[in-house]
Nucleic acid binder design. Structure first.
Lengths: 192, 192
DNA sequence: CTCCAATCTTGTCGATGTCAAGTTAGCATC
DNA sequence: GATGCTAACTTGACATCGACAAGATTGGAG
């Protein structure tokens, strides 16, 4: 693809984010090395710092990208007429499909929590989540506070995704995360 | 306490684990430094490696300790006649009280996953969790598979604890994690 | 064509994890 | 009570990493 290595990479920022996602998928955020990313991208060891300032800056950009993807995914299922159940399954599907992003999104210690782009993306996915929960009708709520129901829904899908990714769940669950998630979520909203 | 620094610390392993928990509580597992722990304990920089072999070894020991504490906590609430709701609240209380342990327990990439002591502690807490879920009666299950109900319960408490610790939950929830958790869990098991 | 600013490189520093080899001390055994 | 063994800890060294400073290169605006 690239016969010569021009001084200006041209698309280094995106390349580095992709390489970071790949590296994190392989061995987690803790093992991530900026110099390794630079090697993968074929640039000098200090190039990443120019685009992201910092290791935390890179992870922050990755987290923001992740929140954006999640919001997209939720908006999509909502546009397709899906309810809470589908939104929950979409949440789990996102986590499994983009595990590197997901691994970084909820670890504030790794991020620049004041980053405006991060906040914007977080707000987008928050809104998308709220919209999904708002589709729940009274029957499904079974008299519970709508606010609490939203927390319950978020908690159950987030917990399932986390446990699934950590490998803590029993192996006989199979390898279909979405189907297992659907059954788990049903317990929360099944009409009595 | 220690006027002189004897060559043999005497209780270094426990001291290092405590220092690690403290350091992780302050700034997360990623920022943990073995040399910093050694400084806190007043020993040489290579002393930690002797007891744990590895950074992963230290985190593994911490995770195993955490699973043991969790199992103790769950056993205690069960002995006190508590049901699933109380077990769930205990789970969240454990996560908030021992956030350093909790932060390490479900991150296999940081651990030596073949460690026998880790497995033993994991089995203990798994059993304690199963016992707690087994107290659910038919009314609360609402016809759902008991196995799935267990997964739902674990997911919801684990997700709530994770989200709470990450600071992702809305601020107006207050600062009482246990009370908030109780309301969230109720949505799952409330009779009809 | 000129100049400027963004992009990327080179060189360097302190800090870290890990390994190898040496030192000290507790402790059983004679 | 001296001896020897083993675990506990230290010292020293090396490769790697994140971060910073200063310089080189390039594309594009005017």
């Amino acid at each position: 693809m690239t016969d010569t290595r021009p001084y200006h990479h041209g698309d280094l920022r995106r390349t580095l984010l992709a390489a970071a996602a790949e590296a994190i998928t392989e061995s987690g955020p803790a093992a991530l090395s900026l110099r390794d990313l630079a090697r993968r991208a074929g640039v000098s060891h200090a190039a990443p710092a120019h685009h992201f300032g910092d290791k935390a800056g890179l992870l922050t950009a990755l987290a923001a990208q992740g929140f954006g993807y999640l919001a997209d995914e939720l908006d999509r299922t909502r546009a397709a007429g899906g309810g809470v159940l589908d939104a929950g399954v979409a949440y789990v599907r996102f986590a499994v499909t983009h595990r590197a992003h997901f691994a970084v999104m909820f670890q504030p210690e790794l991020l620049n929590n004041t980053d405006p782009e991060l906040h914007a993306a977080q707000d987008r996915s928050s809104s998308a989540l709220s919209d999904a929960v708002a589709t729940v009708d009274r029957t499904e709520l079974r008299g519970a506070d709508a606010r609490i129901a939203g927390l319950s829904a978020w908690s159950i899908v987030h917990g399932f995704a986390t446990l699934w990714l950590s490998g803590a769940l029993p192996a006989d669950l199979g390898d279909n995360a979405e189907e297992a998630a659907r059954q788990v979520i049903r317990g929360l909203f099944a009409p009595g």
